[in-house]
């Protein structure tokens, strides 16, 4: 595998971590959302990551691949899983979304947990960005053989 494909692996992780940060931000923004298009309170979303072997573009490429290439896997967001924790019920009889007993359902979101998730995504993003820098350095070093 050439080093440019290695850049793509880091790129896939940058994308996945960005999606994770986006979903976490959406969770944080909707911490008090009681009404959605589907009715009911906002449902907290979890991002599910999965490793996926890096595809080979041709049969020839597959045959020439080394063991390391076959073990190279990039990361994908395989799905968004809604959190199944039941909503938090608060007694607010004057609220327009209150049920007949006067309770309002709020999404079960813990802002502290979301912040930790956001920090994790940001750190993982930084780490992958430095992996890109390192691979770029290697490519540049390889070019200097020519000069």
């Amino acid at each position: 595998m050439n080093l440019f494909r290695v850049l793509e692996i880091s790129g896939s992780a940058l994308l996945a971590e960005r999606i994770r940060a986006e979903v976490t931000a959406a969770n944080l923004a909707n911490v008090e959302t009681t009404k959605t298009e589907n009715g009911g309170p906002y449902q907290r979303m979890n991002v599910v990551f999965g490793a996926r072997p890096v595809g080979f573009h041709s049969f020839n490429g597959m045959m020439l691949a080394s063991l390391a290439d076959l073990h190279a896997e990039d990361v994908r967001v395989v799905g968004l899983a809604p959190d199944t924790t039941p909503p938090i019920r608060r007694y607010e009889p004057g609220h327009p979304d209150a049920d007949k007993d006067g309770y309002v359902s709020y999404p079960a979101i813990n802002p502290a947990e979301e912040m930790v998730n956001l920090m994790g995504a940001a750190r993982a993003y930084e780490m992958n960005a430095s992996a890109v820098a390192s691979t770029k350095n290697m490519i540049q070093a390889a070019i200097t053989i020519l000069s």
Partner: peptide
């Protein structure tokens, strides 16, 4: 071999949040 190793280190870093992923190396 160094380039292969870089491939695997990058894979490890990319999958830092993938459940069930195991670190690999040449």
């Amino acid at each position: 071999v160094d380039a292969m190793r870089q491939t695997l280190v990058t894979t490890n870093v990319a999958n830092v949040d993938t459940p069930g992923y195991h670190t690999r190396d040449v």
